[in-house]
Design a protein around this nucleic acid. Structure first.
Lengths: 144, 144
DNA sequence: CCGTTACTAGTTGCGCACAACTTAATTGCG
DNA sequence: CGCAATTAAGTTGTGCGCAACTAGTAACGG
């Protein structure tokens, strides 16, 4: 689809570097909440959707139990999350918010605007980028 | 620059997910070479530029010595790279390719095309994505 | 009903990332 | 020159990501 020497390599590296730069941008705001970026993503899903199995959380975040189990254990240790076995299917574990976890939502409310201000893209460019990243993810994941 | 509730969050997550998906796409090809993706990036810089200090390598890859030192040590253990103190400035360490490291370039030559074929973007879209990621990186890093 | 197969979480091990710190060398300023 | 400030690389500690594996549960086919 493209000459193989430079461009697509550059795109992949740009992706890798831009992703790390963006999570670095979140770091100060999230440090104040005591969260890492992946923990923040998990909390966002919980704030939006409430109780959820580890499996479904993994599907949404594109992470497996090898990553999520210890991450959720740390959130549980912080008192933000509780975990309990599913009743109908005892293989599953259902993750839910504690009161402290629910309360954190308000403190985290200001985070996205702090980020948006720092990234110098127009609405159109945001939408374009979103579209292109979606295409990349779709084509890469279907390639498996 | 944008309503703070959804879009920019999605973009950041898309970036995070797309980056991991892309490195996952490299994995089979790089496994065959015995390299991880960050190791492959370091080798690419060495193939292009020859001897380089750890500092300059870090500037190019946007990584610090905390990441590079152990990574380069592993490449050295594999016999792909040698490290020696700079003569004029003994604080620096100059990284260079061994014969085995140089030879690996030919085996790695086919990697980029394998990736490009799997990502379903036109040349224009690749260029757009490259441009937008560059803007993100630039605005994020200058924000520091 | 029973055994095989599939599925869900969790664990282990390794290699990043990154913050914080250490060591050693250089630079700069009085 | 002499010493403080700066710089380069390395070390330590924590938290991902992901492969490979384990334990326990559910589903299914005969």
């Amino acid at each position: 689809m493209v000459e193989p020497t430079g461009l697509e390599q550059m795109v992949c590296f740009q992706l890798y570097a831009a992703s790390r730069a963006m999570t670095g941008l979140y770091r100060p705001a999230l440090d104040a909440l005591g969260l890492t970026y992946p923990q923040y993503l998990a909390m966002r899903v919980l704030w939006q959707r409430g109780d959820i199995t580890v499996r479904d959380l993994g599907t949404i975040l594109d992470l497996d139990s090898g990553t999520l189990s210890p991450l959720l254990k740390r959130l549980e240790t912080q008192g933000l999350v509780r975990r309990e076995r599913g009743t109908t299917d005892e293989r599953t574990v259902i993750v839910g918010l504690t009161d402290r976890g629910t309360a954190l939502r308000d403190q985290a409310a200001h985070v996205p605007e702090r980020i948006a201000c720092a990234v110098d893209l127009t609405d159109d460019e945001f939408a374009q980028l979103h579209h292109l990243l979606g295409k990349v993810r779709a084509s890469v994941t279907t390639t498996i």
